[in-house]
Amino acid sequence: MAEQGDELALISRSIDGDHGAFAQLMERYAVAVFNLAYRMLGDAQEAEDASQEIFLRAYTNLERFDPARKFSTWLLTIGSNFCIDRLRRRRFAWLTLDDAVASVPSPARGPERSALEREERDIVQRALLQLPPAYREIAVLRYWNDLSYEEIGQATGLPESTIKTRLHRARRMLAEALRSEGMVADELVSA
């Protein structure tokens, strides 16, 4: 409770233009925001950029924050909307005038890379990235950000029934993808 009061005080100071207070808020949620972006976008560098943009958006919209809500949920709402938007815009990413070549996976994998990819964490991340963005968003908020259905509803603006349907499908798709990698038994998929 004291922590929440402290958080509201930081928000209030941030609204007055105190960058130090907002930096403290960022310190608290940097890991959560970065992880949401990383799980949604699948690239650490892109997740860093996205995290910065999410915090900048949060700062600009800080006056619209409703103190009755949890700040973390509000921040994750901005984060998940931003990531979904970014995934949509990826289709037009090639229109940029930069000469940067996006990370291109080489078909010839060295032994080091192959060994790394065998790690289960990488398998999970790959399976997660196979989900459609709308399902991935729900799965990330549920499993990686530990949000309840109600909080996911607040973050996405979706009714609880839709969240449950999407989560059900996301779970099955994830289980199927993990089963094909030999990480889970068939029973989990057919459950």
Binding site: E27, V31, F34, R121
Partner: peptide, 12 residues
């Protein structure tokens, strides 16, 4: 897989 990944130290 649920263990959080750390962003770079100077993100904030």
């Amino acid at each position: 897989a649920l263990a959080p990944r750390r962003p770079t130290a100077d993100l904030v």
